[in-house]
Write a protein that binds this DNA or RNA. Structure first.
Ligand SMILES: [Mn+2]
Ligand SMILES: [Mn+2]
Ligand SMILES: [Zn+2]
Ligand SMILES: [Zn+2]
Lengths: 140, 140
DNA sequence: ATCCTACGATGGACAGAGTCTAAGTCAAGA
DNA sequence: TCTTGACTTAGACTCTGTCCATCGTAGGAT
């Protein structure tokens, strides 16, 4: 991820302090932040950064396949810098915590041709749901 | 689905014309309507039904496991009366069309214990994405 | 080093989806 | 028929995200 700035520069991106800060916030492969969380963390370093810029930058990073957009529920989308190693998500139904998981098997192969209805299927997304250890404890 | 009204009555539901109409709109197992679509169809039969009542009734039907809530992306949630036969969804990335699919294999078995991080995993949701025949045609 | 300008940033209006509230209505049991 | 608490309603409100007009500046040109 530390070469993200380099890759972006290589793609002809104009480098601004705002974009740099958003990229830095997303640095580290295990975060799944909402746009507003990204904005809050970015604003800690660059107080005047606007929400619109955060949204714009995130959208561009998603378009460039540098960040993955994850919509686990009906709430805010989450932004995942771990876009290079394909993975799925495990979500706590109570607190919303997200973990990366790497299931075995290929779900794409599990969809027979006669179940595709003429669609050109390009992507499969698997979401595991359940209770995280601490939420499971408070239920029992 | 025609016994839905009976089941609801059995569960102590007060039967109102609004609830009856919402249930009738959802009758038939192959629809995936948004709340506003449900409202529009319900209003065709009962013009004064309010959006709030449609939302309330849908939420109750989901709680009672009579209807399934499907959140495909950042768009409006869809409500699926086919809640008794487990199935997954195939979604057109362009127009949002949804089809029920029944993949072979058990994705739950594809998540090794060491990838569960102590979670109690209860549910797996698989979403296939791609282009439906007519959207694929307009691209080529 | 300075100038130019097109691209990017800004804040505030706006939009879509959904929730909440206070007041009015009515289903169904006594 | 009466009563009452559950249900419905309109509209205000929240949350997430987009759009727009205007201002600022990164980085190439000179
Ligand atoms: Mn992830
Ligand atoms: Mn379905
Ligand atoms: Zn939890
Ligand atoms: Zn389509």
């Amino acid at each position: 991820m530390s070469d993200l700035l380099e890759r972006l520069r290589g793609r002809g991106w104009r480098m601004t302090s705002q974009r740099r800060v958003v990229a830095e916030v997303l640095d580290g492969d295990h975060v799944h932040l909402t746009a507003d969380e990204v904005h809050a963390r970015a604003a800690a370093r660059l107080p005047e950064i606007s929400r619109a810029t955060v949204y714009n930058t995130l959208r561009e990073l998603v378009t460039l396949d540098e960040v993955m957009e994850v919509a686990t529920d009906g709430r805010a989308k989450r932004y995942d810098p771990n876009a290079h190693r394909p993975h799925q998500h495990l979500v706590c139904s109570t607190c919303g915590t997200i973990r990366d998981v790497h299931p075995t098997g290929d779900p794409m192969a599990d969809l027979p041709v006669e179940e595709r209805f003429g669609f050109t299927v390009t992507e499969v997304e698997v979401t595991y749901r359940g209770l995280c250890p601490s939420c499971a404890q408070s239920v029992s």
